[in-house]
Amino acid sequence: MVDQPLVGGGGGAEKVEELAALAHPERVAGIVYAGTYASGGQMRENGVTAQSLVDGVATPWPLHALTGNAEALTRYEIAEGYSGVTAPALILHGDSDVVTPLDPRGA
């Protein structure tokens, strides 16, 4: 068993790691973010809706699972909670990400 893992993910999976880091900071060595977003509000401000995610993703998932995941991603709000995450973080982000651009203002 690993007592203090380095955790991470992409496509929303890293949100679970954030919650773990907030609940048990002594158990998380660090977080890796890959193509992530700060909050559902950030996605909504950029015109991303649960339906647009469903429409834009090719997956073998059943529609109810894909819809539920898309709704969870667009509703997730932790922006103010980031100050409570004390684990070191590595952020990987492309400069052509349409869903979560580096600069949401388009500058």
Rank of each mutant, 00 (worst) to 15 (best):
Met1Asn: 13
Asp3Ser: 13
Asp3Gln: 11
Gln4Trp: 04
Gln4Arg: 15
Gln4Gly: 07
Pro5Gly: 00
Gly9Glu: 04
Gly10Phe: 06
Gly10Thr: 12
Gly11Pro: 03
Gly12Glu: 07
Ala13Phe: 14
Ala13Arg: 14
Glu14Val: 12
Val16Thr: 13
Val16Gly: 11
Glu17Gly: 15
Glu18Lys: 04
Leu19His: 04
Leu19Pro: 01
Ala20His: 13
Ala21Lys: 07
Ala21Gly: 04
Ala23Tyr: 07
Ala23Arg: 09
Glu26Cys: 04
Glu26Asn: 08
Gly30Glu: 00
Val32Asn: 11
Val32Thr: 15
Gly35Ala: 08
Tyr37Cys: 02
Tyr37Phe: 15
Ala38Thr: 13
Ala38Asn: 13
Ser39Val: 01
Gly40Cys: 00
Met43Arg: 14
Met43Phe: 09
Arg44Pro: 10
Arg44His: 06
Asn46Ala: 12
Asn46Gln: 04
Val48Thr: 06
Val48Trp: 08
Ala50Phe: 01
Ala50Val: 03
Ser52Val: 08
Ser52Ile: 10
Leu53Ser: 08
Leu53Phe: 12
Val54Met: 03
Val54Ser: 11
Gly56Phe: 12
Gly56Leu: 11
Val57Glu: 11
Ala58Gly: 09
Ala58Asn: 10
Thr59Gly: 00
Thr59Trp: 01
Pro60Asn: 08
Trp61His: 11
Trp61Ala: 15
Leu63Gln: 14
Leu63Cys: 00
Leu63Tyr: 06
His64Ala: 14
Ala65Phe: 05
Ala65Lys: 13
Leu66Ser: 00
Leu66Arg: 01
Gly68Tyr: 02
Gly68Thr: 00
Gly68His: 02
Asn69Leu: 15
Asn69His: 13
Ala70Gly: 03
Ala70Lys: 08
Glu71Arg: 08
Glu71Lys: 03
Glu71Met: 05
Ala72Trp: 10
Ala72Lys: 02
Ala72Ser: 12
Leu73Gln: 13
Thr74Leu: 01
Thr74Glu: 05
Arg75Tyr: 05
Arg75Glu: 14
Tyr76Asn: 06
Glu77Pro: 06
Ile78Gly: 02
Ala79Cys: 04
Ala79Ser: 11
Ala79Asn: 02
Ala79Glu: 09
Glu80His: 00
Tyr82Ala: 01
Ser83Gly: 02
Gly84Ala: 10
Ala87Arg: 12
Pro88Phe: 02
Leu90Ser: 00
Leu90Val: 09
Ile91Pro: 06
Ile91Cys: 09
Leu92Thr: 03
Gly94Val: 09
Asp95Ala: 08
Asp97Met: 01
Asp97Cys: 07
Val98Ile: 07
Val99Pro: 00
Thr100Arg: 03
Thr100Gly: 12
Pro101Cys: 07
Leu102Tyr: 08
Arg105Cys: 03
Gly106Pro: 06
Gly106Arg: 03
Gly106Glu: 05
Gly106Lys: 04
